[in-house]
């Protein structure tokens, strides 16, 4: 799941380099409420209707299914705020991210110590891009395709060496 809206050098303090990306999320809360509650109401109304006539075995299936639907919508909602941002202000590189139930995080690196690691060798996988400092790497560009990721790597290399 990942679509990207990227913006370069927008926002942040003047002169800073900002790269922000996030997956696409076109589901609005009212749409979600309408879709979920109308389905839940329809399923349960039917199931309860038949249950009142004595045919109660539809109810557990309705419950199971609406549970699955609720899980699906909750997962989407959890990921609604997903983003990745990288900001270079002076000598500090600030990474911020948020990913579903794993929650958000923030890491500050020293620009001089930060290294761009780009691994395209693992067969069967997309390239992996990370920023590493003091033996600890943070992955970047999860919402990008390989092409955009390599481009970001190149941009970062030149920015970090300035």
């Amino acid at each position: 799941m990942g679509q990207v809206n990227t913006e370069d050098s927008a926002g942040g303090p003047a002169g800073a380099f900002v790269f922000r990306s996030c997956p696409n999320h076109s589901l609005t809360r009212p749409q979600e409420r309408l879709a979920f509650w109308s389905l839940a109401a329809l399923c349960f109304a039917t199931a309860i209707g038949f249950a009142l006539l004595g045919y109660w075995l539809i109810l557990p299936f309705a419950g199971f299914e609406i549970g699955l639907l609720a899980w699906a919508f909750r997962t989407l909602r959890n990921h609604a705020g997903d983003y990745e941002s990288l900001m270079i202000v002076g000598d500090v590189v600030v990474l911020e991210w948020h990913c579903g139930h794993r929650g958000g995080g923030r890491r500050e690196l020293n620009r001089q110590w930060a290294r761009v690691v780009c691994n395209c060798r693992t067969p069967g996988r997309n390239c992996r891009l990370s920023l590493s400092s003091h033996g600890h790497a943070t992955e970047l560009g999860q919402y990008l395709n390989d092409e955009a990721r390599l481009q970001l790597a190149a941009t970062l290399r030149s920015r970090l060496q300035e």
């Binding site: 389905l39 399923c43 039917t46 199931a47 038949f50 045919y55 075995l57 539809i58 299936f61």
Partner: peptide
Amino acid sequence: YLLIATMPVLAGAVT
């Protein structure tokens, strides 16, 4: 949407 709305009914009926 129709599938989600009606599948529990089929499942219940055959059960």
